[in-house]
Design a protein around this nucleic acid. Structure first.
Length: 763
RNA sequence: UGGGGAGUCGCCAAGCGGUAAGGCAGCAGGUUUUGGUCCUGCCAUUCGAGGGUUCGAAUCCUUCCUCCCCAACCA
């Protein structure tokens, strides 16, 4: 089985940096489901991530039920969730928590906020609050209750808790900023009144905390170090930090977001899955077609395969949709190694051996695993005159590349003899009822003499075969993205479940429910954990075998045609266009820079972005830097620095910047060294000439010195030199890079290139 | 039209100024008593587009384009 290499995705990087910086001694993550539905493959990614991270770096992961909404949550779900997490292979030990256990702590934090004037009771109703929130482009309006006194707020909040008010009469809100560009910060709700029975806290409370208040504080209460959630919570991070800052719990967890998992040909939202269950499009949450963990388990997906899959798809921040075939690959990869082989006939076709004596029978031995798996074990298979083969393995009028059974053709019965089809028997309607064949008794365990038999098919002995039901599952939806084609239910695949009745070999008569098999040449099957018994054999098709023959025919009928993207050619902006966008105090600078200094429209635009920047640039000029060089430097180098530090907060002034640019202009330093000096200036505010001296960063211009640098390098990389000379000229960059590194970045690049080129071409 | 994210092969995804990793899918061969597995080879002169900086740009600057998220008393 293939090993999935572990990529250092951004969360692992963050954790390693935090660990290296000594921010904490162990990683504490949490998986925080709301108990209002079953877990699905998307949750599996989160579970693997959270538990995986704490395992890798040393630490622990908590299982915490985020049960702050009494109207949707249920004990059934807390059971199923625990079951699913455990089945996936993870252990939270004694770290099982419930947000509902924190209700009292949370209440006290809210009281603190009120006391500090950071929260207030709002008595507006739902519609009023919504109306006053504003829109994404317009600021919200403060509630008329926003300035209630601390005493009044305290009193009201206590009475809310005491049950004096009806649902919706009041809410507790954070007092942040109704004009914030981040809608989540416009005085978000912290508590609402709900006279509802909670599945755990019962009737102890009639006010319940909102997610944004409860979640971050629950994290803090548990000393979570890395609170990992999905992308849609990015906007909530400001609020997460705000609540932590103002409630000031001892621990200060941080939130990080990653892209949730999407897989094509399925749906992942709880609402849609719930609909499928409620409207009986599937048999339940654990229907093998469901992307739920319970469904996948019942389908026969190994937990290891799911874990491998989650590792394989990676963790990043780009919305993406993973191909179903990637999951299937992981399942086959595990099952190929785990599932013993057996033979099953799903659409039986009777086959009579006219050369085999009536009443005779023999016992043949068949390996449980093919040689390359390296696992021992055999089973017995009875063989007699009448057999069943798969109807698909015979074609009366074969297509071109069909190399299974055909009239007059010979084929190998796997683990038995080769046979030849002599005649086809049909009923009155012309339907094939049986195949009359002959067998070559001299082909057991060896190749027939004088001829090659290419086809191999599977079979069962009609005398001993056991009837079995096969549930052949396929993708639940016809469209890659069922949720984007109007009503998602319209995309339901009518053939997602096909029930077939056939036979399995006798050795499977007493297998336990929940065992895996590979039915040779067909697929991996799983004895259904609920419906399978010795009385009635029921096998779920977990996944088909990869099919190198039929695939061309069955290729994705529903794959939408790629829409050609129209590339509009972007024209450079004209002086007039940019001028029209400039503010009044920018215009004079913009005009001077472009018209008088001869700078490009873009550079003039950038330099005149603020009067302060424009003045900074002009001061550089009066300190001696050239117009062009200074402009390039400010636009390309300083602008980068200014993303992190405001101009006014820069530890050096325009004259020092000017000095740096002049060094560059004189050729004393290369642009690479200029960058190095700049970052030093940002750190220390020192004069560039001083940095140059103390660090010895003067450019190396002597060709001999550079040659001496390159020589050993070429010797050490003789094969690469050869490859380069043989035409792999991309390697040039490698040599430049190495040589530059060897010089500590000080080699004059122009001279270095000359010397290098000469040395590489001299053979 | 505000704010927050994201764009690297058909699908995921590394890459953090110096030779465009890897996996899935696909294609072509080899091994094979599974049209499976396994093995070998092929599969991005180019990183959403344009412009710029640099000896050198997927990586830095700049303009633009596209997609996702935010206006539940859900989480």
């Amino acid at each position: 089985m293939s090993e999935t290499p572990k990529i250092k995705h951004f969360l692992r990087q963050i954790i390693e940096e935090d660990l290296a910086a000594g921010k904490f001694s162990e990683v504490v993550t949490r998986f925080p489901p709301e108990p209002n539905g079953y877990l699905h493959i998307g949750h599996a990614k989160s579970i693997c991530l959270n538990f995986g991270l704490s395992q890798e770096y040393g630490g622990r992961t908590h299982l915490r039920f985020d049960d702050t909404n009494p109207t949707t949550e249920d004990m059934e779900f807390v059971q199923s969730i625990q079951n699913d997490v455990r089945w996936l292979g993870f252990d939270w030990q004694d770290h099982l928590y419930f947000a509902s256990d924190y209700f009292e702590d949370l209440y006290q934090f809210a009281v603190k906020l009120i006391r500090d004037g950071k929260a207030y009771v709002d008595s507006c109703n739902l519609e009023e609050i919504r109306a006053m929130r504003g829109t994404v482009t317009e600021p919200g309006q403060p509630s008329p209750y926003r300035n209630r006194s601390v005493e009044e707020n305290l009193d009201l909040f206590a009475r809310m808790r005491a049950g004096e008010f009806a649902d919706g009469a009041h809410v507790l809100r954070a007092k942040i900023d109704m004009a914030s560009a981040n809608m989540k910060m416009r005085d978000p709700l912290l508590y609402r009144i709900r006279h509802a029975h909670h599945y755990r806290s019962g009737d102890a409370w009639c006010i319940y905390p909102m997610y944004d208040f409860a979640h971050c504080l629950s994290d803090a209460l548990e000393s979570i170090t890395h609170s990992i959630c999905t992308l849609e919570f990015e906007n909530n991070r400001d609020l997460y930090d705000w609540v932590i800052e103002h409630c000031d719990p001892p621990a200060k967890p941080k939130q990080f977001e990653f892209a949730r998992l999407n897989i094509n040909y399925t749906v992942m939202s709880k609402r849609k899955l719930m609909t499928l269950v409620k409207e009986k499009h599937v048999s339940g949450w654990d229907d093998p077609r469901m992307p739920t963990i319970a469904g996948m388990r019942r389908r026969g997906y190994p937990a290891l395969a799911i874990r491998n899959f989650c590792e394989q798809i990676g963790v990043a921040k780009a919305n993406s949709m993973v191909d179903f075939s990637q999951l299937e690959y992981c399942i086959r990869d595990v099952l190929n190694y785990e599932a013993p082989r057996a033979m099953a006939i799903t659409r039986p076709l009777k086959l009579i051996l006219e050369t085999y004596r009536e009443g005779q029978s023999e016992s043949l031995e068949a390996a449980l695993f093919p040689d390359e798996i390296g696992k021992p074990g055999t089973r017995k298979m009875s063989f007699s005159k009448t057999l069943y083969i798969e109807a698909d393995d015979f074609m009366e009028n074969p297509t071109k590349n069909f190399h299974r059974l055909v009239p007059g053709g010979e084929v190998r019965l796997k683990n038995a003899y080769t046979i030849k089809c002599e005649r086809v028997e049909k009923d009155a309607n012309g339907q094939i009822t049986a195949l009359i064949c002959s067998h070559d008794p001299n082909t057991l365990g060896k190749a027939p003499e004088g001829r090659k038999v290419k086809g191999i098919i599977h079979w069962v002995d009609a005398q001993t075969a056991v009837p079995a039901e096969f549930r052949v599952y396929d993708r639940l939806f016809l469209d890659e993205r069922p949720d984007t084609v109007g009503e998602f239910k319209d995309s339901l695949n009518p053939d997602s479940l096909v029930v077939l009745n056939g036979f399995v070999e006798a050795s499977l008569a007493k297998v336990d429910a929940g065992s895996h098999f590979q039915f040779e040449r067909q697929g991996y099957y799983f004895a259904d954990p609920k419906d399978h018994s010795a009385k009635k054999l029921v096998f779920n098709r977990t996944v088909s075998l990869k099919d190198g023959f039929n695939k061309a025919a069955s290729e994705e009928i529903n794959t939408p045609a790629k829409v050609e993207e129209v590339q509009s050619v972007v024209k450079a902006r004209t002086y007039e266009e940019v001028l029209a966008t400039k503010a009044e105090n920018q215009v004079p600078f913009f005009q001077t820079f472009h018209n008088d200094y001869g700078l490009s429209v873009d550079d003039a635009d950038t330099l005149s972005a603020t009067p302060e920047l424009a003045q900074f640039y002009q001061t550089m000029l009066t300190s001696g830097a050239g117009r062009d060089a200074a402009a390039k430097w400010v636009v390309n180098e300083l602008m980068r620095i200014l993303k992190d530090i405001a101009l006014a907060a820069l530890p050096f002034d325009a004259s020092k910047a000017s000095a740096l640019v002049q060094l560059l202009e004189k050729g004393t330093i290369s642009s690479k060294i200029a960058k190095e000096i700049l970052s030093e200036m940002v750190e220390t505010g020192q004069d560039p000439n001083a940095i140059l001296e103390t660090k010895g960063l003067k450019q190396i211009n002597d060709p001999q010195a550079i040659r001496a640098l390159i020589e050993p390098l070429l010797q050490q990389n003789a094969e690469k030199v050869q490859a380069y000379r043989d035409g792999k000229d991309k390697l040039y960059g490698f040599f430049v890079g190495q040589a530059m590194k060897a010089s500590g970045g000080k080699a004059n690049p122009e001279i270095l290139n000359q010397v290098l080129t000469a040395m590489l071409s001299a053979s």
